[in-house]
Each structure stands twice: as structure tokens, then as C-alpha cells.
Design a binder for these strands. Sequence first.
DNA 1: AATGAATGAGTGTTCATTCAT
DNA 2: AATGAATGAACACTCATTCAT
Lengths: 197, 197, 197, 197
Amino acid sequence: MTRSLRADAARNRSMLLAAAAEEFASRGMSASVADIARRAGVGKGTVFRHFPTKDDLLAAIVLDRIESLAALARKLYLADDAGQALFDFLDEAAGRQQQLDFSFLRDSGDINDQLRDAREGLYVAIIALVERAQAVGAVRTDVTGLDVILMMCVPAHVVSFVPGAAPDLWRRYLAMVIDGLRPEGAHPLGPPSPAAV
Amino acid sequence: MTRSLRADAARNRSMLLAAAAEEFASRGMSASVADIARRAGVGKGTVFRHFPTKDDLLAAIVLDRIESLAALARKLYLADDAGQALFDFLDEAAGRQQQLDFSFLRDSGDINDQLRDAREGLYVAIIALVERAQAVGAVRTDVTGLDVILMMCVPAHVVSFVPGAAPDLWRRYLAMVIDGLRPEGAHPLGPPSPAAV
Amino acid sequence: MTRSLRADAARNRSMLLAAAAEEFASRGMSASVADIARRAGVGKGTVFRHFPTKDDLLAAIVLDRIESLAALARKLYLADDAGQALFDFLDEAAGRQQQLDFSFLRDSGDINDQLRDAREGLYVAIIALVERAQAVGAVRTDVTGLDVILMMCVPAHVVSFVPGAAPDLWRRYLAMVIDGLRPEGAHPLGPPSPAAV
Amino acid sequence: MTRSLRADAARNRSMLLAAAAEEFASRGMSASVADIARRAGVGKGTVFRHFPTKDDLLAAIVLDRIESLAALARKLYLADDAGQALFDFLDEAAGRQQQLDFSFLRDSGDINDQLRDAREGLYVAIIALVERAQAVGAVRTDVTGLDVILMMCVPAHVVSFVPGAAPDLWRRYLAMVIDGLRPEGAHPLGPPSPAAV
DNA sequence: AATGAATGAGTGTTCATTCAT
DNA sequence: AATGAATGAACACTCATTCAT
């Protein structure tokens, strides 16, 4: 009874999340709530019923992605080949960010606690992955987990400049990024890694 | 008489460009014309006298930067060490983008002809630099000039995620990018380079 | 079966009236239907099942009060001391309006027929009380029943300006109003009483 | 040069104030900025150019009235007949509030400092007037300045319930209020005067 | 009969752009 | 040529009302 109504609401919620992800991806934080509602095929009021503010809508999307990425990182931490584990993680992360990269974390005014915690958890998991890959010599030792986190966003960003890019073009730039993280042919990096992101 | 007026106007124009560059750099495309005018110390109307729309103001800034970067590329093309020439170019380009990266070109709706031509000129000059660097073995041969152009924006982008970053932090990520462009330790890149940007 | 449903419905209706009276009293006409429903512990839809519009809900409350006040006026008309009867009525009326004064009648767009009739009945009863009090010399003869009706709202209104007022402060201003209605020390009133309210 | 432009702006500002006073008077704080703008014959943006928020617009109106009323009170304090001075003041105050009474001070969320100071000044001036009137026996001694301030708003409020009231009807109710303030026929007031308003 | 999800008109406010001075 | 006042289309968000369940 409540079941079927919930089903409708849940459907709207997920259409909203999908529509918002696309709008945010193409217009950034300045995507308008009206456009998101239109794309999701619902009224403007429905957006606000599900997410009290535009920022909350963005946060919901980002939280989703961060948590699923963190889960992946934790799973890959258990893989046999530490180097491959990190590269697989980067592959998946770069691929997902095709649609919505972390830039929004920066654009969106202030970050809420839940989001901050989730992000922290993701960072911890990635750093562990990186350190394990360094231990087996797969990654140069002068980069930090934070550096890898930052470079992970590069493929999506770079591809965003290429109109009509092939859907897998991001792999090309991920390959370049990864080659820059390898020990072979590494040159000194200059300034030290930042303290936090 | 027109003389002195022109001088005033020119002065206003360049103060406007400087003010706008700073505002755009810190607030992105959503910097307001009113703020730009205030920072430049002129009235809002004066902004529109010089640049018919906000987009035109942005385009003027970008055009400026593109042309000066293209000039630099052409000058470095004449340098003895082809590899160093490219790296020097990237160093300068990445450093300048600290303040205003090309992202705006993407954000700003449509690009005008003058801008398109200038960009084309810059691309040609960079591609020449890259090919010369490849000829002497300083850069892997499976990257194209277009790839380098795209990767050139990476340091500014990456650093933008780091609050309170050291002013030279971008050099760290440029070093990583460059290491990824070197022949040593290069792995296959997968998808081909895009046809155009 | 209909029986028990009716009981439920009646219960909801009166909880709704009580909740709405409190909300309207503290927030005026801009109290929200959602808040009223929440305070009554029912769904928003239920509010509209009982009262087609927010205005109707307000009208129902006011109708209630008007009718009970009219009943009181009629009862007091039978009292021995005509002067005391009127003052007792004003005391009770002013006290009740502590919670919801007639202002809402003015704010709420148009008045419905039932409400108009009830108000008319109240006015008739009050006018009778006043005339009887004048007949025994308790009230100056240059005021009309309508004047008294209007002045009756004064204590609640005045007290509404005093933050943290003592709960019986309205009596102070009712006393002043009544002193103004007495024959002793009466001065000419100037303009004639209005034809209707 | 700036002169003539200012003239236009000043004209708009005062039309805005007038329009807002009328809208606020008839619809209370829920008068809409759009309606005010329409009534003033200007665009919505113009309202915000002159008054940063709706509350500021209201505050400007109220401040104006408060200050001019305070000036009047101070002037009348110098009059020979202390009783007449107070009654003259009440006459003027009640007449002005025909259009916009102090209710707005209550409705408007928070009061700004300038407004609070002005109100304080007005209160001080009125209290002085009252005490002087009491000293010559024109006003009963058991009322305070604060009481008078509160009762001063009565005529405007009462008349607001009379549709199509004669323009001077407020004088009738002011006369009743004043008769209630006289020493003749005064009865005990019951609860003490409030500490502050 | 009751619920609360959905809707969309309306609100206060911002801002690029126009235009009278 | 320069100013800033005026404008109105957008925007995020609220809320009375409707309706599927």
C-alpha cells in the first residue's frame, strides 16, 4: 500500500538523480533546478520534496559516487597484484568520472559532514592502495596518495575539452597519467605534495 | 583631443582586462560584471562600452593569453635544445594558467572567429614544438601535439583542488605530466588521439 | 461502521480546528497548512478533506467563536444588572480574543454567507446589550452598539505589541476602553458612528 | 549633471515609498514586491536598487514616520497647555497612522538598530508629553507613557475594520480613547503597565 | 477516509544588459 | 566617453491545492 506509492517516489528520486548528474555534468553547479526537473520529467516542487536544496541534490549524487568508489578501493586492496589493483582502481575511477567529476566538491559552497566523512574514507582507502603499490615497486615512491587522488581526476577533465570525443578517449590520458606515476624514467618532482585536499 | 580620450580609453580597457582576469580567476564565469567594474574602478556602463557582452570580455582576455602563448611557442621553436624548448614552453604555459585556465573557453558558449583563429595558430605552434621534441627523442612518439595541448592544462586544474596550495605547487604536477610524456617507461596509450580540440 | 468513521472524522475535525486556531493565533494568516496538519497530527490531505481551502478552515474557527460569543451575549441579556452584563460580556470577549482576534475576518478575502449571518446575529445581540446598558446609564448614550463592537477588539490588539506580556495584561486596556465608554467625563465624539461594519 | 539623474532616482524613490506604504497598509507585510513595483510604475529591479531587501523598504517607511512623529512630540513639549499638547499629538499621530500603523514593527522580523533608536527616541518624547499632561491633571495618573503609546494605535486599527469609513472616522475613536485617559470617571486598571514595548 | 507525493504559481532576490543623462 | 539608474528574465525556494494510492 505504502509500497506502491513509495515505488513511484523512488522512481522519481532516481530519475532526478540521473537527470541532475547529467545537468551538473554539462553545466556545472549553475545547472538550474528547473532544467533538472524538466529533464527528469517532474515538477519543480518535486525536486525540493526529495532534496531540500540544490546543494543537497548535488551532495546526494557525489556521496553516492564517493561511497561506491571507496567500496571499490577497499575491495581492490585485497587483490593479489598490488600494482594492478591500483591501476584497476584508477581505470574504474577515471571511467566513472566521465559523467561527473569531483570538481563539484569544490564548486559547491560548503561540504556537509556526511560528505566530508565519506571523502575522508575514500582518501584513506586510496592512500592504502597507493602505498601498497609503491611497496611492490609499481609506483614511484616520490608521489603520495594525495597526488594520485588529484591525478585521478585528470582524464575526465582533459576529455571534457574534446568535443565529440570517442567514449573511451579517457583511457588514453589515464595511460599517460599512469606512465607519469611509474618509477621508470621518473624525474624529481620539485615542490612537496600538499598536506591535504 | 581624440588622442587623450583614446589614452584614457586604452587605460580603462587594460584595467578592465586585468580586473576581469582576476575576478574570472577567482570566481569563474560567474564573476559579476559589477564586481569587475568596481575592481577596475570604472562604472558598469564602461565595461559594456568596451566589451558588448560579458562573454566578449572573457574572449578578449583569453585571446590575449593565447596570442602571447603562441608568440612564446614560436620563439622557443628557434631554441637549440628542442626537448628543453618544449619543456620550457610547458613550464611557462602551466604557470600562466595558474591564473586563468582555458576551461573558460569551454564554459563560454560559443567561440568567436578571431579566437578560433588565434587558438588555431597556438595549436600549430605547439604541434611544431612537440614534433621537434619528438625528433630528438625527448618526447615519446605516440603522443600528438593535441595530446600535449590537453595535458598542458592539467597542473592548473589539479592545483585548483588544493586549498591554500603553495604558489609553485603546479610545478609538481607539471613534472608528473612531463614524466608521462617521456619515452622512458612508456606503455601503449590505447585509443588514438582525437582529431581536433 | 459509518458510525465509528464519523467519530474519527469528528475527532480529526476538532483537533484540526484547535491546531489551526493556535497556528493562526501565533502566525496570522500566513500559518502554513502543513504546520497545522502536523500540529493536529494528521496528513495534509485530511485538512483539505475537512475544509476545502485554508480560508474555509479559518472561517470555521471564526464561526465557532462568533456563535459562542453570540450565545453568551444572549444569555447576559437576561442578567439583572444591565451595565454589569455588558461589562461582563466585554471581559469575556476581550479575553477570548487573546487567542484569535477578529482581524482575520478582515484579512481573509471574502466572507461566506454563513459567517455573515452569524456575525449579524452577534452584532444584534451586542447592540441589544449596549442599548440596555445605556438605558440604565451605565454607558454614555453617544456611542452605538457598533462602536462597542469595534472597541471590543482593542485589548487583544494592543497587547499583541507587548512582547512577553503578562497573561492578564489585556484587562488593563479593557479597563481603559470601558472608562472611555462611561458617561462620566464624556466629551463629544465628533464624526458619527459608521453605518455598518 | 548628476543633479538631473538624481532627480529621477529621487522621484522613483519617493513613488516607491508611497506605493509601498499603501501596499503594506492594505496587505501587511505580505504585500509583494512585484505589486509595490507595479503600483510605483517601476521595474522590480528598481525596488531592490533603492532598498536592498523588502524589510529595508518597510524600515525606511517606518523610520520616516517615527522620526517625524518624534519631532512633532518634541515640538509640542514646548507648548503652553500641557494637556492640549498631548491631545494634539495624539490627534496627529492617530491621523497619520491611518495609512500605516506601527503593526509593521511587530510583523517585520527583526528591527534594525537605526529603527530601534528612533523608536526609543519617540517613546522618550511621548513619555515626557504624557508626564507633563499628568502634572497638570489632564490625564489620569495611573496610566503610563507606554500605555498611551499603545492606545495611540487604536483609532487606525479600529477604523481598518470599517469598509468605506468616512475619512475622519478615526477621530471618533480617538475621542473615546482620550476620554478613557482622562481623570474623570477613572476606575482602577487592574494589571500594571508593561515594562517595555 | 486518510495519506503524503506531485504540482506549479508565486516570492524575494540577482544580474547582464540598455539607456538617459 | 562615462556613469549608474532602470529593467526584466532567471533563479532557488515555498506552499496551497490536487490526486493516486
